[in-house]
């Protein structure tokens, strides 16, 4: 019995973590190029709603996933355009993306509230009550495994390939990279859109698997947690994944606390992940003496002729 409860917790943890991790990894890639995108929440919403709409209308899963990922990526190109091409403030632009994304997704999704999804991304094998770790893993769908693959690939590309080193170089010092003949605008633009695509995949996971329906503001602040995760992970894919697991665990733990016999208000427990993020940020900043691993150029617009 305890085992099943524990495995249920693990199962929920992995699902919550997958959702957080994919978008966080996308943001990590964007930030590595020197662009800060605070619009994760909006991008996830756009991905979530477009995927859901496509799924309702076509019942074609593959198409829905594609639409979700692509529309979030195209949406993120607004940020890329405003910050990379027009060199405007990244904080402001990112915030607009969040507000606009939430409003736009609510507008688009208005007719879809309460509609029942006929197709859903299925687990490898659907097990109602997994009783061991292996069964829990089987109970995940392909996006979970895709997330693991993306983590390994991203880490490898960043560390071991010239492509990744160049991306990181652009984010570290765009002037120096520019003088080496690297394409700053192109790199940053693409990295921002890749970040958008990853956030879109998170959105797809949200509406086509995690909670298979649509309501307004259903991202409920997860996009912001993703931003915190990148900092938590020190801009490293594996540590970001670890952070996602921790936050996923807390999110999964909340509704189960009472079954474990804790007499805490569920409303208060719900705020613990946010409290813990703040505490972790503080501890990490103190521990690393301010060197959090942030890309050197993050948030600063690049104009070649600046003197």
């Amino acid at each position: 019995m305890v085992d099943i409860q524990l495995m249920g917790l693990l199962n929920a943890t992995l699902q919550a973590a997958t959702l957080l991790f994919i978008a966080a990894l996308g943001e990590l890639i964007t930030e590595k190029s020197g662009i800060l995108n605070l619009g994760v929440e909006g991008m996830i919403s756009i991905g979530a709603v477009t995927a859901f709409m496509t799924a309702i209308n076509t019942q074609n899963l593959f198409l829905s996933i594609l639409v979700g990922v692509l529309s979030a990526s195209i949406f993120s190109s607004i940020h890329a355009f405003v910050t990379v091409i027009l060199k405007q403030d990244q904080t402001v632009s990112g915030l607009i993306l969040t507000i606009l994304g939430l409003a736009l997704s609510s507008l688009l999704g208005k007719k879809y509230v309460g509609k029942k999804l006929m197709v859903k991304i299925e687990s490898i094998r659907d097990i109602a009550e997994p009783s061991n770790v292996f069964e829990v893993l089987l109970n995940q769908n392909f996006i979970f495994y895709l997330a693991i693959l993306l983590m390994i690939t991203t880490s490898f590309i960043l560390k071991k390939t010239m492509f990744g080193r160049r991306l990181e170089a652009v984010g570290e010092d765009s002037r120096a990279s520019d003088s080496m003949g690297l394409k700053i605008n192109k790199t940053q633009f693409i990295a921002t859109c890749v970040g958008g695509a990853f956030a879109g995949l998170s959105g797809v996971y949200l509406t086509l698997s995690y909670v298979p329906f649509w309501t307004d503001n259903m991202t409920s602040g997860r996009g912001w947690i993703c931003l915190a995760l990148v900092i938590f992970g020190g801009w490293k894919p594996y540590r970001t994944a670890l952070g996602a697991l921790l936050f996923g665990f807390l999110e999964a733990l909340v509704p189960r606390l009472q079954t474990y016999g804790f007499e805490l208000s569920p409303y208060l427990v719900k705020i613990t992940p946010y409290l813990i993020t703040i505490i972790v940020l503080v501890v990490l900043t103190i521990y690393k003496e301010g060197k959090t691993g942030a890309p050197g150029n993050i948030g600063r617009p690049f104009f070649r002729e600046n003197r």
């Binding site: 605070l38 904080t91 602040g221 912001w224 931003l227 915190a228 900092i231 705020i271 946010y274 409290l275 993020t277 703040i278 940020l281 503080v282 900043t285 103190i286 301010g290």
Partner: peptide, 16 residues
């Protein structure tokens, strides 16, 4: 005191 990014912390306090 510690230089923690205020964008993230002010935002997280919203949810708290």
């Amino acid at each position: 005191v510690f230089g923690v990014n205020e964008i993230i912390t002010t935002l997280l306090t919203n949810y708290i």
